[in-house]
Amino acid sequence: MNLRLWLTGLRPKTLPASIAPVLVGAALAVRRIEQLGTCIEIYPVPAACLERRALQADLTNRFWPVAVLCVIVALFLQIAVNYANDYSDGIRGTDEGRDTDEASAIANKPQRLVASGVPAKYVLAAAVIAAAIACAAGVAAILIAQGWWLFAVGAASLIAGWFYTGGKHPYGYAGFGEVGVFLFFGLAAVLGTEYALTGSVDALGVCGAVCCGLNAAMLLMVNNLRDIAEDQQHGKYTLAVRLGERRAVMLFIACLVAAWLLGLYVCVTLWMPWGGILPFAGIVVSVRLLLSIYRHQFRAALGAAGCQTLLFAIAVGVAAVL
């Protein structure tokens, strides 16, 4: 077994899309926990103020254990989805032509495990192990946070991860992959993290979740634009295949603009007015992303899309702290 090949199967450029929404949710949670302790200084201290400060102390004490567990859940869930995708596409023949370094370099696409001759059952086992780690960390986080409805979110995430390319009727083959990514690596990840850390969600969290969802969807759109010819040949009707390359690129640009505007709003709201400067620190990455798409340099575009996702999370974190 080639260790380098297994590391390639992790699809490292997609991993920021799993970590970033947890960082955003945690950053927004920090802001809300700090605000709980804000009370008018009068004597005697009002009972409502004492309750809020007691809640603040409780949330602060469990913040780091829950936050770390949320990162583990998101990271290993992404790894599980990546291996499951490799398994499902491999047995369907969708990854044909990605069996060697030379073939992958010619096709300008990464090598895949099953297509390279790794037994499919081993790739499936790797996906199951990663999913089990995500489940264990998720259960621990829920028990600490006592957010029982998060069990349903976790179960839905696992089911969505498998049926993206697995099963008889995978939704990734019907053009709904971007929708699934938006929901689970955007809304569910950010709002689930915020809820686990604070016990509730707010409107700013929704804005951050939508922004993360758009960034994650764009990462998948780059991947699908790269594979548009092969996907169509193998009956994989992704959104890019259904729209055609030109309209898919137009949709990509619309998502990029929307994500930028939302990111700007979140950062300015967190740190008025200086937070508006933070998103512009990553404008070079966005320009590089667009240029790479137009030049069909999809490996560079994937790296830029992953970097942009992480930069947004860092910008939100800095704005929340400052």
Rank of each mutant, 00 (worst) to 15 (best):
T165F: 06
A115Q: 03
T309A: 12
V114E: 01
G244E: 08
C255M: 15
P119D: 07
V68Q: 14
N61L: 13
G138H: 01
A136Y: 11
I142V: 15
I72G: 09
V268R: 05
G161E: 02
F176A: 06
A156T: 11
A304P: 03
E245W: 04
I277D: 13
V321F: 10
H296F: 11
G93T: 12
L15S: 06
Y195K: 12
L10A: 04
S292L: 10
N108P: 00
W274P: 00
L197Q: 05
G175S: 09
W64I: 09
G97A: 08
E34N: 10
S286T: 11
A174C: 04
G117E: 10
D227N: 07
A84S: 13
I129G: 05
G235S: 08
I144H: 07
V128F: 07
L59I: 08
V318R: 01
C207F: 14
L239M: 08
L36C: 03
A152F: 10
I283T: 06
Y171M: 06
L262N: 02
I142A: 03
L28G: 09
A300M: 09
P119K: 03
A240D: 00
R295M: 15
A281S: 01
W162T: 11
E34S: 13
A84L: 12
S18W: 09
N85H: 03
A217G: 08
A254R: 13
L5K: 09
A137E: 00
L256V: 10
W162I: 15
I129W: 00
G180K: 04
A134Q: 03
Y195S: 06
L261G: 14
G25Y: 04
P119Q: 08
V316H: 01
V206A: 07
L77V: 11
G93Q: 02
A105H: 00
F298E: 10
V114M: 09
A57R: 14
A196C: 15
A80Q: 08
M218N: 15
V257H: 02
P46W: 07
V266K: 01
A189P: 12
A217R: 03
M272R: 14
A319W: 02
A313Y: 03
C49S: 03
V257C: 08
I293E: 04
G208D: 07
A67I: 06
G172R: 02
H234M: 15
A20E: 04
L220P: 02
E34P: 00
V123G: 05
G167Q: 08
A26D: 12
L289W: 04
A304Q: 02
G317N: 11
R299A: 12
V30R: 15
T94F: 07
